[in-house]
Simulated scan of single mutants.
Amino acid sequence: MRKVDYLIVGAGIAGLSAAARLARHGSVVVCEGEDAPGVHASGRSAAFAHFDMDAALVRALTAASLPFLEQPAAKVHPALFIALEGQEAALERVLAGYREWSPSVEHISAGDARALVPVLRTGDSGVVAALLDRNGRRLDAHALLELSRRELVGAGGEIAVKAPVTAVRHDAGRWIVDTPGESFSARTIVNAAGAWVDAVARMAGVAPIGIRPLRRTVITFDVPGGMDVSRWPFTKTVGPGFYIEPEGRGRLLACPMDEGPSPPCDAQPEDEDVALAAWRVEQATTLAIPRLASKWAGLRSFTPDRLPVAGYDRNAPGFFWLAGQGGFGLQTSPAMARAAESAAAGTPWPDALRAVGVTADDLSPARLA
């Protein structure tokens, strides 16, 4: 049995970025059940950083993270938020939340939106107004994961792949974690297992926090007529609808923003959700989608209040929760990793989080007890 200071369960962006920070303070091993990091939610994200989030806490975490999201993992790319007929009030709410952190956001007309994305429908049942953020960030999920992996390994940490956790127990003040190939004795276990965090907690005899995995579907398709869409903005409805994003010169990615309840699993797209994605795009644009280039699904995991968690369980010494980053895990990962470092290692609260008004209590799992 190998002794470590921190044993992280899960090598998605949450676990891997936190592990890279914690490796500055002690020995770290990340246990990942798959054969590579980021196989599930992190590797299946459309990965765009913006402030169209309902929760003020998530917007603040995004603001704290943006200075750390730089090339090649993040590239400036405009974002367009469209209001379909009946979504005008939602557009104003998005504008109010946006201006706190990105004052340069512009309120533009439906005609201006169509000039940016020529296939948008306007008028009845179409786009009536929009917001334009010229400073959005298109993220490369795999590059972000690789940056954290390199930082972790450079600091002496390790990643054990094909190492699903099979048993967890507390003994003599330490956590004993078994995997098929090796067992570990850890001072701290960081539960960053995404959709599986409650399952890991139950294995350890710790009360779950009520995580909810929700399936989200993505399709890609080629734009007819050889149209160059590479400069189109990331385009998202401010209410129920869809978002689209360029995937090269002649291909678009689309998502119906679905949230299908699911058990923790290797999520697969369901036909009904795939059809919904195509239908919503066709209703709001002049595009026709006769065939798909690809389709996939991933699980976005939320706590009951849909806010992230980073902190020790008050009833289980040394058991640290890092969970509930939903669909915003990539864009908030730098801030959440620094929060986890401070809360787990006992270092001063990060200046980047203090500057945006985020406290340790905001992220504590105690609120979910």
Rank of each mutant, 00 (worst) to 15 (best):
A74L: 07
A344E: 07
G298L: 07
L252N: 06
D171I: 13
K3V: 11
G156E: 11
Q268W: 15
A195T: 05
D198Q: 01
P348L: 08
N135E: 15
I13K: 03
A74S: 02
V218A: 04
R93F: 13
G173S: 07
R251G: 05
E259M: 11
G156V: 12
S364T: 11
Y312N: 01
P263N: 14
N315P: 00
F51V: 03
G26C: 09
D305K: 03
D266C: 05
V356F: 09
A340R: 02
L139V: 11
P240S: 14
R249T: 13
W296G: 00
W232D: 01
A90F: 12
A340I: 09
R138Q: 13
S294V: 06
L253R: 06
Q87F: 12
P261A: 10
R216I: 07
D171Q: 15
V39T: 13
P246S: 05
A204W: 04
M227R: 14
N315R: 14
F320M: 00
A288I: 07
S125Y: 14
S185P: 03
K75A: 13
L287R: 00
L66Y: 12
A337T: 06
G226C: 06
S104P: 03
N191L: 01
F320A: 00
V28S: 01
E34D: 13
A340W: 11
R114V: 08
A14E: 13
F184P: 00
P37Q: 07
